[in-house]
Design a protein around this nucleic acid. Structure first.
Length: 802
RNA sequence: GCCGGGGUGGCGGAAUUGGCAGACGCAUCGGACUUAAAAUCCGGUGGGUAUAUAUACCCGUGUCGGUUCGAGCCCGACCCCCGGCACCA
């Protein structure tokens, strides 16, 4: 036996053995309790990066631990294989097809995952770009189309000039494209949407089912959905047979609504100004606003600009005529694109009113204020606090809360307005003007209009030979044999939808395909869903907090409504793992601070790499890469290796299968032996709980290090003849089992070197004994006035002597 | 501005939830082995005061205050950092 851990000789050998034995295949017939552990699948970009190593190491520890704990574990892997980089590579290199590029990357990354020793059931591998997967993505689209949850609509959408495609709101960050950082434009286009807004309330309310999600992430989603309760109120427009609808969260302030403001894009603007002397002036203003960058226009710091339309509305409660303004600070995309301005109680409205000399009426004031406040007394500060109503006719004296209810009742009775909930969340725009994605299964018939492709004609296959250079329209446009088809309803001439789906659609249900990956009749069977769904533990980066995780939750609810599963949440437990940093920032090619996992694996081996990445930091925190830290992990593994190799002769003689645990006679232990035995049980408890309950792998590993130190400590004080080999062997065996999820290769090798039978991976997880953990100490509790004053621990032997 | 998370040695981080702050590791210093180096093993390492030494005592978890026999942890006020949303009506 070598005197050091030679990973290059060992790791590949074990990976091959595990594969040959089919060790990680999920047993469908097992009667053990099921456990489904899943890491977010990667986009096949070509090579694993350190972020991948981190997620997959975490998932692998959990999978191996749960297996040893006696669960029937499902631990699958797949590929989020559609996407822009494949197409961009094809354009850049000219002669490589996105499909070939993707398949080659997948092969590459699969090998790298195997080299890490990850315990996946590769028989369940899922690839979203294969027709047998995207057939079901299309199938879900059609089910949603039939239920009115997928619809086509013309509206102002986000356009990324870099990617030459539209984007969902969720993919726009600070008005930039989330993937290429180009400034996003607005374009008026007809596009496909999923009606995620129908699920807004459920997406918020069901957060209560997600007890183990980080509060931070629930908050992010809640902010994103942006639910606000208020009223829609109709204001008659003077001289036009129309009503102007506004949304407000403060109907209690309606008596203070002294003017109206429309977004420049509001349809009523045209009607108000057409043919009036204001027409030219107003249009000039609107053009000026349109030229403003989105960022400038929507920043709270920006100057509020506006103009009078010449029109008036009638405040339905006061009956007074109030001017209708247009201003850059009102947005068409939220509410109704029009507001009732209450300058006394909204800072934006007050700033605007002062600039354009509009009337201000105080209608709420603090309870301790007796005299009615004048607008001058506000001194430019809108009053947004609570209090009682004034200047509000019959409602005077009511509190803000009472006024809301009374006002709502009154307005509903008079049919002026109704209580409404508004969301910031927009419907999910899913069409993309790109090639490498799932075709949208819709056909446009000259006589029948848009028709869903019948289920028995799925999949609508993506054609292979296509000119991909982006033109702002889908490259499928020019593939005549794809585009020209016949109508499934009337058999007449028809054209196919040429846009493809956002790749986030593909990844919104992949976790359900793993549970039944070869099903030809359905995306998955309900029986399998009952067995495996929801995912027991999901692991992935927090950067998907809104995009992927919101979409996946939405899809699960839709799928549940379709009756395919009873579950409404896909991931009850989600571990949001942090990033891997170098020099304090995210690794990136442009910064030149990338550490390539391939180099680390070549230099230190998989066990060391895994151990370091799990030990350096708790999983949800960002992790600073440190070569010195990696060396520390290597040092520790070698310490364990030597613990065995230096005593291999004595250890090999102990065979628990023959002499069983009666060789361990706790009563006859001396002080040092007792201490080591105690340390063993303490370690078992700590490691088990750290993995199982807290997902704190860093502290689990430090506990194993302490046990290793304790073993060295024990040996240090002894001559070789005095070693209690049965005890020492027991400690080593258990130590290897505890360490095996973290360092699977080395522990596998040591396990057989010791002459033990079977794979260490298949050993039962050790149980700890409470009694073995007790220190030989007596606790003396000092009480004063019945309260515990002090606890003193005294060595039992000493106290007996006294 | 609103919402959420956080602040502990030179560094990454522990403290099993109110009970010996700094586990484990990195870095560093000293010792052993060696002709020497590497590797390895053993030991020191929050700050300070006293002592020849063993040791003893004081201070210390962003700041100030409170509750408690006892606070890194609970309460109040404030400062700073990170993340989300934001002219959202």
């Amino acid at each position: 036996m070598k005197g050091f851990y030679d990973y290059s000789q060992i790791e590949e050998k074990w990976q091959k053995k595990w594969a040959d034995e089919g060790l990680f295949k999920t047993d469908e017939q097992s009667d053990k309790e099921n456990y489904y552990v899943l890491e977010m699948f990667p986009y096949p970009s070509g090579n694993l990066h350190m972020g991948h190593v981190r997620v997959y190491s975490i998932g692998d520890v959990i999978a191996r631990f749960k297996n040893m704990k006696g669960y029937n574990v499902l631990h699958p892997m797949g590929w989020d294989a559609f996407g822009l980089p494949a197409e961009n590579a094809a354009i850049k290199h000219g002669n490589v097809h996105p499909a070939e590029w993707t398949w080659a990357n997948i092969d590459n990354m699969r090998e790298q995952m195997k080299a890490l020793g990850l315990s996946y059931d590769w028989d369940r591998e899922v690839t979203t770009a294969y027709p047998d997967y995207y057939k079901w993505t299309q199938w879900f689209f059609i089910q949603m189309y039939k239920k009115g949850l997928a619809y086509k609509n013309k509206s102002a959408v986000n356009w990324c000039p870099g990617c030459e495609t539209v984007l969902a709101n969720e993919q726009v960050v600070n008005n930039q494209c989330e993937r290429c950082d180009s400034e996003v434009d607005k374009k008026e286009l007809e596009q496909w949407f999923f009606k995620i807004t129908d699920y807004a309330d459920r997406l918020i309310d069901d957060h209560q089912l997600l007890e183990n999600w980080p509060e931070k992430v629930k908050t992010m989603q809640r902010n994103w959905i942006g639910r606000s309760e208020g009223m829609k109120i109709k204001f008659p427009v003077k001289g036009v047979d129309q009503e102007l609808e506004v949304f407000t969260t403060r109907p209690d302030t309606i008596y203070g609504a002294t003017y109206m403001v429309l977004a420049p894009e509001h349809p009523l603007v045209k009607e108000l100004i057409d043919g009036t002397d204001k027409e030219e002036e107003v249009n000039e203003f609107i053009n000026k606003v349109k030229k403003q960058k989105e960022m400038e226009r929507t920043s709270p710091e920006s100057e509020k600009d506006g103009i009078f339309t010449g029109g008036y509305a009638i405040n339905p409660m006061t009956g007074k005529e109030i001017p209708i303004m247009i201003a850059n600070y009102v947005l068409m995309g939220y509410g109704t694109g029009a507001i009732m301005a209450v300058p006394a109680h909204d800072q934006r409205d007050l700033d605007f009113a002062m600039k354009y000399d509009l009337p201000v009426t105080v209608v709420i004031q603090p309870d301790e204020q007796e005299e009615i406040l004048s607008s001058e007394e506000l001194a430019g500060e809108a009053y947004t606090g609570g209090g009682h109503l004034v200047n509000s006719a019959d409602f005077d004296g009511l509190s803000v809360e009472e006024a809301f209810d009374k006002m709502a009742a009154e307005m509903e009775k008079k049919d002026i307005g109704n209580v409404e909930v508004n969301y910031r969340l927009r419907d999910w725009l899913i069409s993309r003007q790109r090639y490498w994605g799932t075709p949208i299964p819709i056909v446009y018939c000259e006589s029948c209009g848009p028709v869903a492709v019948p289920e028995d004609q799925l999949p609508v296959e993506l054609p292979h030979d296509v000119e991909f250079s982006p033109t702002g329209e889908s490259p499928l446009k020019n593939v005549e044999e794809f585009v020209n088809t016949e109508c499934p309803e009337c058999g007449g001439k028809a054209k196919r939808e040429i846009d493809t789906m956002d790749t986030f659609v593909d990844s919104s249900w992949y976790f359900l395909r793993y549970i039944d990956p070869h099903n030809q009749e359905l995306p998955f069977s309900k029986e399998m869903a009952e067995k495996w769904f929801p995912v027991s533990q999901y692991i992935g980066g927090v950067e998907h907090a809104i995009l992927h995780l919101l979409y996946a939750r939405f899809f699960t609810k839709v799928i549940s409504d379709l009756g395919l599963t009873d579950e409404v949440e896909p991931f009850g437990n989600w571990l949001a793992q942090g990033m891997v940093l170098k020099d304090g920032t995210k690794m990136s090619k442009s910064k030149g601070n990338v550490v390539d996992p391939r180099e680390i694996l070549a230099k230190y081996g998989a066990d060391t790499a895994r151990l370091f990445i799990l030990f350096a930091s708790p999983p949800e925190k960002d992790l600073e890469w440190s070569e010195a830290g990696v060396e520390g992990s290597e040092r520790f593994l070698n310490r364990v290796w030597r613990l065995v190799s230096e005593h291999i002769r004595g250890l090999k003689e102990i065979d628990f299968a023959k002499s069983d645990s009666s060789a361990i006679d706790v009563k006859s232990f001396n002080k040092e032996e007792k201490e080591l035995y105690r340390q063993l049980h303490v370690t078992i408890k700590r490691v088990s709980e750290d993995i199982d309950e807290r997902l704190n792998f860093n502290t689990a590993i430090s506990a194993i290090m302490e046990l290793t130190n304790a073993a060295y400590q024990y040996l240090n004080n002894l001559d070789a003849d005095d070693i209690n080999y049965p005890l020492f062997k027991l400690v080593i065996d258990k130590l290897l089992v505890l360490l095996s999820p973290f360092a699977p290769h080395m522990t596998a090798e040591l396990w057989v070197e010791l002459g033990n039978k079977g794979f260490v991976y298949e050993q039962p997880w050790p149980e700890y004994q409470e009694s073995a953990m007790k220190k030989d100490e007596v606790t003396i509790v000092v009480q004063i006035n019945g309260k515990v004053r002090d606890k003193v621990e005294v060595d039992a032997e000493l106290s007996e002597e006294e």
